[in-house]
Design a protein around this nucleic acid. Structure first.
Lengths: 196, 196
DNA sequence: GAAAAATCCAACCGCAACGTTGGATTTGGT
DNA sequence: ACCAAATCCAACGTTGCGGTTGGATTTTTC
């Protein structure tokens, strides 16, 4: 088998993603990551530095994937509900991400990849503002807050799943669909113009 | 000084609340809790058992305080916006609680005080359902999901403060007021009946 | 075939944490 | 005065983790 340094790096990062999402930065051990990847623990340090750096790499990577998978719609949020729905779908398919995000916020350490993320959210806010000026979205709520709350509507379900469970019962197939529908409706009600 | 076992218990619990909220179950050490309380570490075990049990006690206690401080309004959610605003205010004044809740969800261990909490949420859902039947709230979204999302609108700001910061800038006094206003408006738009 | 790079392996250091224990000391009740 | 309960104190055993290191082994490259 040929040397495959990119593959090694990727396998380590994937294992780290799973472990970090599951147990958090504190609960995760470098030995477990290596074991899960089937690669010697010592490789981790050569490739990623220490644990904190590895965590930041993992999180930055996963955020990139989200941004690539759920781009802001070309219609300028004309169908904001479906946009929120697609965000919900992404989180449902990749529950790692929200968990990593929460671990990061709770730990209170450095914010991974902060410059890029800030720029990304600036663009997003601009897009919302443009949609408001165009009359596609209501301007009842400031664009940055609207962006933040739309994210929240989708992600909240995966942020406190035990609370969701106590309120709604176990989330089987039908409950999952029901939740998605609620997210879509809530986003519409929150952001679409209406007469009141 | 007289023996004050209740006071000892309370001081330990308060110290534990601060530490657990700040660093989470993993990051918190029993020694630090005792040190913060100014009480010998060994007392913790006599009073609360092990670390996990202490954490559950702390969380159950803080949830009781929230329920006592922000009761469902007597007007049956006629002013749902202000109700969400008061919830936001409580979280702003007691940022411990959301953090404890998130640590619990992420850790994935046993749910503290599950029976009482489930009952509490059942009642809450019933109250929302009644308000919907009375025409005070829109029935566009199922009552359990509405309750869950209203909680989310208030708590999301404190769940991912670093994300909020990247979107809105630092949260000084004015930003704080702005956020509260957005929560109030969002809750109204989400739940109040309107013609569309 | 030799040198260089990637990987594995195993052991190590230092440290910090959980939970316990055995006793000394203080306080309260009777 | 005496006994029981609450507290303090200091040390312990054990476990586990982060990060490093020195070398053996395999693969690539030239």
């Amino acid at each position: 088998m040929a040397w495959d340094t990119e593959g090694t790096r990727r396998r380590l990062k994937e294992a780290a993603t799973v472990e970090f999402a599951e147990r958090g930065p504190d609960g995760t051990t470098m030995a477990r990551i290596a074991e899960r990847a089937g690669i010697n623990k010592e490789r981790l340090y050569k490739y990623f530095g220490d644990k904190q750096a590895l965590f930041e790499t993992v999180l930055a990577d996963e955020l990139q994937k989200l941004a690539a998978s759920v781009p802001p719609p070309e219609d300028g949020f004309a169908n904001i509900g479906e946009f929120a729905g697609r965000t919900y779908d992404y989180h449902a398919a990749h529950p790692h991400l929200v968990r990593l995000l929460l671990w990061e916020g709770l730990a209170g350490g450095p914010v991974a990849d902060e410059a890029n993320r800030t720029a990304h959210y600036r663009d997003k806010t601009r897009a919302y503002a443009a949609a408001q000026r165009a009359g596609i979205l209501d301007d009842d709520v400031d664009p940055d807050h609207m962006a933040f709350m739309i994210i929240g509507l989708s992600a909240w379900w995966f942020s406190v799943p035990h609370l969701a469970g106590m309120l709604t019962g176990a989330d089987d197939q039908t409950e999952h669909a029901r939740r998605r529908a609620s997210v879509v409706r809530a986003a519409q009600r929150l952001a679409r113009p209406h007469l009141d």
